[in-house]
Design a protein around this nucleic acid. Sequence first.
DNA 1: TGTCCACTGGAAGGGAGGGCTT
DNA 2: AAGCCCTCCCTTCCAGTGGACA
Length: 428
Amino acid sequence: MQENIFTSYMHSKTVFKGDKDILRPSYIPEVLPHREEYINELASILVTALRGNRPSNVLIFGKTGTGKTAVVRYLEREVGRLKRENTKSELNGELSEFDVDRVEYVYINCEVVDTHYGVMKNIGNKFMESWSEQIPFTGWPMEKVYESLKQRIDKKPKVVVIILDELDKLVAKSGDTVLYHLSKINSELKNSKVSLIGISNNLRFTEFLDPRVRSRLGEEKVIFPPYNAEQLKDILNERVKKAFDAEQIMDEEVVALCAALAAQEHGDARRALDLLRVSTEIAERERCSKVDPNHVYKAKNKIEQDCVREAVITLPTHSKLVLYSILLSHKNGHDKLTTGEVYAGYKELCAHSGMDSLTQRRITDIISELDMLGLVNARVKSFGRRGRTKEIQLSVPERDTILTIEEDESITPVDKLKTMESKQTRLI
DNA sequence: TGTCCACTGGAAGGGAGGGCTT
DNA sequence: AAGCCCTCCCTTCCAGTGGACA
């Protein structure tokens, strides 16, 4: 076989038994340690659907990585399993008090689909029939989308469980119109029933809802507490058993360290799994036969750097320029800036890159967006007679972030400006 | 105690872009 | 082709704000 760029890697020993995805947060395992209580609670609510009745609407709260989505998707899978078993027993002529086949699950992540129209369209298209046409991604009046959605759901009797994950994101962006329609849809359906499960990181988002929507939606509430280090350890051990050839591949202290680091950050299981997965990948790349704590610390740094890089790369150009302005001022020793100062720098950068600048009003919003992404830290502060404005501080590594921004071809790097103009600007 | 600064942030609306309807 | 719908990104307008200072 001819030597190829991949050859040496293909022959190197891998510590993984098979499916690397087992260590991904999106993988739903057979056992969800320390969430049995919540699985049972939700199952007791959802069993109503299996009897052909409408279960109560449920709101699930909890911070990131506390297992909310995993539990809901776990239950969805169990319903699917029940459906398959039901088909088998029907073939054997057995009768059941449950009508599992009529239960339909629709899962929507509102961080991805975050508009009123988008949510309705996605639900509607889940119930495509031979007679119905695909709802286009834009173009139809809202009223028509809603009517079509109702017709599709009501065509055959069923109990539809709609899961709206990251619901707070949808409410923050598009208000509660979708929830208003979906929560009153049952009064307009003849054959079918709809139940809603809302999942949110933010306990307080219901404050922004219309009181009618709030009461209809929050018939049942479930709060998921964060995991502690011991619980995270159990979760990791469960997956390690499945993912690796042998437990000798990994020191016990590696799992404990991943769990401890993730527990420091509000008990985030997603974080713990990422740490474990990336540590293993690093060990593999370094061709080590064992994963050790050093790999975990390297993984921690890599995850943090990747997060920042990803966030910066995907910013729109003007947001990049605003961040660039903050970075360059920081480089020149100004670690605390006001909106006015950032705006002045931003305008200069726009001029040098040959772009029209946006208004200061828009830049205030962009600064708030950068703050939300954790790239800067902005808080409103009053300087007395010198006015009231945001005080902005950088919260990402200066050098790496500058280099990432300068990768954007539409932005002229400041070093180039120096040689091009050979004159001092305010920023340089 | 009132003034004043440098904004903040809500509200309204414009216009471009993608698409459907008649 | 003209008219309409929805979303997104942006501008314009403007009342409101916290606290230093006279």
